[in-house]
Structures are given as structure tokens and as C-alpha cells.
Nucleic acid binder design. Structure first.
Lengths: 208, 208
DNA sequence: ACAATTAATGAACACTCTGTTTATTAAGTG
DNA sequence: CACTTAATAAACAGAGTGTTCATTAATTGT
């Protein structure tokens, strides 16, 4: 537990640990990881691990903390974007830049994100991701609307959208990142604005 | 590992183990549970645990298997419901019965579901839930539409909707189950058919 | 370039939990 | 009531944990 982040040895060791940690999470999940195996695979002394982390839970939390902070930064920068501006982007078939940036960032950290949001991942990390998405929602509902004029409870809608967004991110990671960040941002924009039913192309007779 | 499910003692012991398991999952998560503590809290001999389960992983899987099977049964019974029929329900502001039944079942098993879908839960269980939802989707996209007429990749839309559904279920469990199963089913129906933007009540000028 | 600093190592420690086995006790069965 | 079998108690080796300490090696600032 030292915070001297300047020393080359510390940087090297921490990077080693984190890389092997990601691999092992993918392989056997957090439960299945032992500090012994982790350090053996990273080719460092087991005692060295405890110089930097309290235990493997602490390692997990430190990794997650960094990612969540960086994602919050991306979403925060352009927090001012309101619904009209977003609609304006949509009318030009152009996704808002901060959504593209989010997908760019996920792409850069794909291996970690894929593991943490996958079947061997950490559900509390998924919840924190949804929390970030909700606080910086594409459709900024809280500021714009009063609860009364909503057709469903506001909390339900926020849960719906933020979960849907995370789900699409999970699909993207799981299916091999074939679409571009820009395309993915457009997908979210389209489904959210047009609605799931409309994007299927089903002739929508009752809506008016 | 015995399958004599008739004996009163077996039923009692298994029920004890599962109840304490749910409590401990809530408290400290799967990682934090030890067979020792589990059996102490359940007031049974540690050896007895191994008479019924290979290890705690096996216990988790057996519990999940049962729930997933029962949910699949609920969703399968009415699998035949097609989009027109669902739209018909919607036009009468009445949710399809099988969606209400799903929420009824979740309510009955609320403590287990809340834990497994919460921050200390099992992400692979969440994935299996989404899988069940996708296979028996309210909007039965696969049968009804060709991929070409879709405005976004079909897989993305399926990920979007199934994740959104699960997210609303998670919200419902987390927020104390205040709404009725029928109300929750209606919420899903509304958001999915009208779209997230429309249900906010925002004047929708560009859609036509 | 060198002395000072400190990260990394290797070995050892007591401790906890695991999964299995054995003989014995107690409960449920027909 | 006799039979079957689930539950118990105690013991076991094995594996991983988190800590300590003396030693080695790498990095830093001057």
C-alpha cells in the first residue's frame, strides 16, 4: 500500500498485476482467482502483491474506480447538452460527440470492459456504469420534464433506458466490436428517439 | 449428492441451506461466503452440506437452475402470442397475461431474485435472464420481420429491449416492489411501443 | 557516477477454510 | 417395530491467506 506512483518498478508491477488480473477474471471469475496464482502468472513475488493491494478485493476496486472516473469525465464534459440539441443532432443523422467518445473509450479498454460487463464480471460495476449513464443521460429527462406529464414513473423510464444502453454496450463487447463507435452511438440514438417498435419497421397504425 | 427428495430431513436441510445462502449472498456476496459460516448459521453440520452439494458453486447453480426453468415455463406457455395480439392488448390498455405472470413469479421469489440481480448477485444469472426474455420477447421480432427492413441491427435491438426489461425488473426489486405486477407489465408495454422519448410527453415534431 | 532510497525477493509463520473419511446417533420409512 | 438412511462429531491433509524480516536489486536525485 504505497502511493509512490513515480517509480518505474511500481508502474511495471502494477501494470503486470492488472493485466494478469483481467486475464484471470475472464478465465475463472473473481471467485476463482487466488493471489498465489495471480502472482505466479505475473512472475512476481506474492509478497509484492501485498505491497500494493490490501487483498484481491482491493485490486478489483482500484481497477474499477479508475475506469468509472474516466467514464464520468467523458460524460461530464458535455453534460450541458440538452434535449433540443440532441434532437438537432438526430435530425442530421449525426450522433452527439460525447456518446461517440464513450464508445471510443470502451473500445480502448475493451478487454477489461468485456470481462467486467460479461458473465464473470462484477454486477456492482455494472450498476455503477448504469449510474453514470443515468446521471448523464442522452435524453436529459430530469431537467426537462415534470414527473406529472410522464406516461410512466420517471424512475422506471430511467432504469429502462440506462439498462438498455448498458445492454447494447455489453452486446457490442461480446459480439467482437464489429460496428464503429459512431454506428453504435447512432443505434442508441435511433432506438431511443423512434422507439423499439418503430425501428423494427412495423407499420405503426395506432401511434399519432 | 443424493436425489432422494422424498425424505423430510432432506427437504428441511436443503431449504435451510438455501435460505441462509440467500441471506449471506445479500450480506457479503458469493465470494465472501464460506461453507463453514453457511452451515454454522443454518445450524447444521458442515459435512451435511457436502451430502447435498459438491461445493458452494454447485449450490449456486442448483438454485439458479430452478428459477430459470420456472421462468422459462412461464414465458413458454404463451409463446404463441404474436405482435398483432400484443398490439391488441395494448390498445385495450391491458398487459399480456404472461408478462403479468412473470412479475407475479418474481414477486413470489423476491428475496432470491433481488439478491441475484443486485450488486452482490451473479452476472451469469442476469445473462440467463436476458436470454429467457429475448427468446420470449414481448415484441416477437424474429418471426415477424426480416433483417433488411430494420433500422438498426436486429441483434442490437434485441440486446436493447431485453436489457431494458431486466433493468426495469431490477429497479422494481431494488425500490421495494411498490408497483403491482400489472402496473409493471404496463410500463414495459408502454415504453416499448411508444418509445422512451414519447413517454416523457415531449412534443414529438419530427416523427411521422 | 555514486550514494541513498526504496521496491522486490525468498522464506517462514500461524491461521482459516476446504473437501473427505470414519464411526456413531437420530430421524423417517413402510 | 425393524430397517434404512440422513445427520452428526471429530479428525485429516492440503491449499491459500496475510504478515514479517532479512537480503538483494533497481531507481532516483545530486
Amino acid at each position: 500500500m504505497v502511493d509512490n506512483t513515480m517509480d518505474k518498478r511500481v508502474i511495471r508491477t502494477k501494470r503486470l498485476i492488472r493485466n494478469v488480473f483481467t486475464e484471470l477474471m475472464e478465465e475463472k471469475g473473481f471467485e476463482g482467482i487466488t493471489v498465489k496464482e495471480l502472482t505466479t502468472k505475473a512472475d512476481i513475488n506474492r509478497g509484492t502483491f501485498y505491497l500494493h493491494y490490501k487483498d484481491k478485493q482491493d485490486l478489483l476496486e482500484q481497477c474499477e474506480e479508475q475506469i468509472i472516473n474516466e467514464i464520468n469525465d467523458i460524460l461530464k464534459i458535455e453534460r450541458q447538452l440538452n434535449l433540443e440539441e440532441t434532437l438537432n443532432y438526430y435530425s442530421k443523422y449525426e450522433p452527439p460527440p460525447f456518446v461517440v467518445k464513450l464508445f471510443d473509450y470502451i473500445l480502448e479498454n475493451a478487454s477489461f470492459m468485456k470481462v467486467m460487463l460479461g458473465p464473470n464480471g462484477d454486477p456492482s460495476f455494472q450498476i455503477r456504469m448504469k449510474e453514470s449513464l443515468r446521471k448523464n443521460m442522452l435524453v436529459k429527462i430530469e431537467e426537462k420534464f415534470h414527473k406529472e406529464q410522464m406516461m410512466v414513473p420517471q424512475e422506471c423510464l430511467l432504469a429502462y433506458i440506462s439498462s438498455a444502453y448498458l445492454g447494447v454496450i455489453q452486446y457490442w463487447l461480446e459480439s467482437g466490436l464489429k460496428e464503429s463507435p459512431r454506428d453504435m452511438a447512432l443505434v442508441l440514438l435511433k432506438i431511443t428517439f423512434l422507439g423499439p417498435l418503430t425501428v423494427t419497421g412495423f407499420p405503426n397504425t395506432f401511434k399519432s
